[in-house]
C-alpha cells in the first residue's frame, strides 16, 4: 500500500485509510479474478483428468461427449477451432490490414471521421447478431449459391462471420501501429523520390510490422475464443476434418452445448467442459502474451 506524502501521513484520518483500502482492494480484483479463473479451471480439469488420461485427451481423434461410447480426444475440437479461426484470419488479415493502411495513410481526415465510427460499429455488433447473419444470410443465400454441396452449417460460414468480427480489430490496431511510425521516416523516403505507395510498402509497413503482427495475434485470440457466432454458423459436429464445407464443433461451441443441455453437475461431460475451458484459456493466454511481447519489441524500436 502506498503512503500519502510524508507531511500528511500523521494526520491521515481513519476514514481516508478505509477509502484507500477500498481503492486498493478494487485494484486487486483483477488479480483475484485471474487467480480465481485459473483455480477453477485447474481444480475442475484435474477432476476430469483423473478419469480421462491427459495423453488420451490431447492425442485422441474422436470426441463424443453425449453419445456412447464416450470418447474425449480433444483434437477434433482443436482442429475445428483452428480451422474456423484460420479461415477468419485469411479473410480478416488482408481486409483489415488494407483498411488499416487506407485509414492511416490515404484517407483524408473527413473520410476518416466517417469511416472510423463505421468500423467501430462493426466491431460493436453483438456476436449473436453475426451468428444470426450467418444462419440467415451467409449460409442459405450466399454460400448455397456459390459453393456446391455446402450444408446449413459449415466451417466456411463460421470463418466468414468471425472474419467480419475481427477485421475491425486488425484494422484499428494496425492503423495505430502505422500512425506510430515517425513522420521523419516517411519524409526520408519521400525525399529520395519514392512514390506514396513505395513509402507505404517499403518503409511504413515494415516499420510497423511488429505492431501489425501483434494485431493479427490478438485477432487470432479473439477468433479462437469467439462463441455465439460460431455456435450458430458452424454447428455441433465434432469431427476431424479439413473440409471447410463441413460442419464441425469448436471448443467454445462444445462448452455452450454442454451448458445448454441438462447435463448433471458431477458427470464426466460436465467436467469435460472445464477441461476444454482450460485448454481454451491456455491457448488464448499464450496468444495474448505473445502479442504483448511483440508489442513491447515494437515500443523499443524508435
Amino acid at each position: 500500500m502506498t503512503a500519502a506524502p510524508a507531511s500528511f501521513t500523521r494526520r491521515t484520518p481513519v476514514r481516508e485509510r478505509l477509502v484507500e483500502a477500498f481503492l486498493a482492494l478494487s485494484a486487486a480484483i483483477g488479480i483475484l479474478t485471474t487467480v480465481g479463473i485459473v483455480a477453477v479451471l485447474v481444480f475442475e480439469a484435474v477432476e476430469f483428468f483423473r478419469e480421462v488420461p491427459l495423453l488420451e485427451y490431447l492425442t485422441g481423434t474422436v470426441w463424443s461427449a453425449s453419445i456412447k461410447p464416450f470418447r474425449f480426444g480433444v483434437l477434433p475440437l482443436v482442429t475445428g477451432t483452428l480451422l474456423v479461426a484460420g479461415l477468419a484470419l485469411l479473410i480478416a488479415i488482408p481486409l483489415g490490414l488494407v483498411s488499416g493502411i487506407y485509414l492511416a495513410e490515404y484517407a483524408s481526415p473527413r473520410i476518416r471521421t466517417v469511416l472510423k465510427p463505421l468500423l467501430e460499429l462493426i466491431a460493436g455488433i453483438p456476436t449473436v447478431v453475426l451468428g444470426f447473419f450467418a444462419i440467415n444470410f451467409i449460409s442459405p443465400i450466399l454460400l448455397k449459391s456459390l459453393v456446391p454441396g455446402i450444408g446449413g452449417f459449415s466451417v466456411l460460414a463460421g470463418g466468414i462471420v468471425v472474419g467480419i468480427l475481427v477485421t475491425p480489430l486488425i484494422a484499428s490496431l494496425s492503423e495505430d501501429a502505422l500512425r506510430a511510425v515517425p513522420r521523419s521516416l516517411r519524409e526520408g523516403a519521400f525525399a529520395m523520390g519514392a512514390t506514396k505507395f513505395e513509402v507505404v510498402r517499403r518503409v511504413v509497413v515494415p516499420a510497423a510490422l511488429s505492431g501489425i503482427m501483434a494485431s493479427i495475434i490478438l485477432a487470432m485470440s479473439r477468433a479462437v475464443g469467439e462463441t455465439m457466432a460460431v455456435v450458430l454458423a458452424v454447428g455441433a459436429n465434432p469431427q476431424l476434418t479439413l473440409d471447410i464445407r463441413e460442419s464441425v464443433q469448436t471448443m467454445t461451441a462444445f462448452i455452450v452445448q454442454i451448458s445448454l443441455g441438462d447435463t448433471p453437475a458431477g458427470s464426466l461431460q460436465f467436467k469435460a467442459l472445464f477441461a476444454v475451458g482450460a485448454t481454451l484459456f491456455l491457448m488464448t493466454l499464450a496468444l495474448n502474451l505473445l502479442s504483448d511481447r511483440v508489442v513491447a519489441r515494437f515500443r523499443n524500436r524508435y
Binding site: S184, L185, E187, G188, A189, A191, M192, P206, A207, R301
Partner: peptide
C-alpha cells in the same frame, strides 16, 4: 535530395 535534422535511417 534531402538530409534531415534528425538522422532518420529506415529500420532496415
Amino acid at each position: 535530395g534531402m538530409v534531415f535534422q534528425k538522422p532518420n535511417p529506415f529500420p532496415k
